[in-house]
Design a protein around this nucleic acid. Structure first.
Lengths: 143, 143
DNA sequence: TGATATCCGAGTTGTTTAGTCGGGATTGAA
DNA sequence: TTCAATCCCGACTAAACAACTCGGATATCA
């Protein structure tokens, strides 16, 4: 029942981006230094965040990443699912819903617990927005 | 965010034991056949359940395992924690509470989310008792 | 043109998982 | 007393996964 380092770093990186919200693109090198995370590892995480439309990127010099929505609108759950894929406590739940995963004729007795667990995990992760992780006021562009 | 196969099998095995509650010791071979789980793998799981005092064992011929409490008193959370250890979504939470896990001076901003997550996972797993997984009535000893 | 970025895919190293295997100790029954 | 069933114990292993690392291609701005 563990989250990966990718998720942990992803959330921390997004928290940094939240602080610099609306201050233009922030390069990963900056985040890597601040959070003591390998730059190359961050480079591996951010394509997932971009695919999920949580961040936008600017290439080339003076490029970087920025949040595509306000930190109040991005939930921790969004980040977790973007980086790790959908929450599935047991493999059984990742299959097509209608299909019986267990080949026993009766419905899997334990399945209901794992479904409930999955839903509750998603709930609690969706309760917390990025802005709540950064108690200090965001830094806006000076101009 | 996955549970191990050990946990999944552990819960299923305990559900079988719940059905045969108070019907004397049930050998693992029986559970293995019913649930299509490797006997040797089950033998690896049950010492954990015993250590957590969820089951009692009877050795030798006609031996086996039985629940040490009623299926209403055993929660899924008990089984999960017995087999997998305490729930820790990130390693940070497994350290001694008082010690600052991150070496940054300010408290880890994301920690609060993971604590909340951990607590909620424990909550939901402790809401479901073993008896709720076996909708059919338990089989009591005939005598 | 050159420095700085994102982007892309492959390689590496260590850990964990999901078992298997072989045998020892204990007990109930024939 | 012997036998078979059972729990018990520790080591082993193959495959998957995690957490990076590495080398470079591509885009952009000054």
């Amino acid at each position: 029942m563990k989250l990966s380092a990718k998720v942990e770093y992803g959330v921390r990186a997004m928290a940094v981006l939240a602080i610099y919200y609306q201050a233009g693109p922030l390069p990963l090198r900056e985040i890597a230094e601040q959070e003591k995370i390998s730059l190359k590892f961050l480079e591996q995480i951010f394509p997932d965040l971009k695919k999920a439309k949580l961040v936008e990127s600017a290439r080339g010099s003076r490029g970087g990443y920025m949040l595509s929505r306000s930190p109040a609108e991005i939930k921790v759950g969004d980040i977790v699912r973007a980086v790790e894929g959908p929450i599935t406590p047991v493999d059984c739940l990742s299959e097509i819903e209608t299909k019986a995963c267990c080949d026993r004729k009766d419905a899997c007795l334990t399945r209901q617990v794992w479904e409930k667990l999955r839903d509750r995990i998603n709930d609690v992760l969706d309760e917390v927005a990025l802005i709540e992780l950064v108690d200090i006021k965001p830094v806006y562009k000076s101009s």
